[in-house]
Amino acid sequence: MQPQKLVEDIIKEQSLIIGEQLAKSRAEDSGAVKFKSSKINDFTIQQENTSKVIEILIEAYEEIFGQASVEVCLDVMKKYPIAEMGIVLPEHIKLSTLVK
């Protein structure tokens, strides 16, 4: 599983809800990523630990619509194999929430 793809999918899905500008700024301001250009898929992950990146990203979006924003992130993660998600899932989010 490529963390870059997962993070990109989360940011893209959030941009469909809150707009690309806010979705990117939340991701960047949280310290999870740094964008190299205006393209939504052109960024570098700023943390070594993928689980930490996902956690920071979810917390950043949670500040906007609360649990509703968290669910958007989880819906993205549900599209990935559950075995892979178990490795990157933040500790405070149970694996059972990813079961479809």
Binding site: S15, L16, I17, I18, G19, E20, Q21, L22
Partner: peptide, 11 residues
């Protein structure tokens, strides 16, 4: 427009 206009649900 600041929320993404037609391209976002909130917009």
């Amino acid at each position: 427009k600041k929320w993404g206009g037609l391209s976002s649900v909130v917009g």
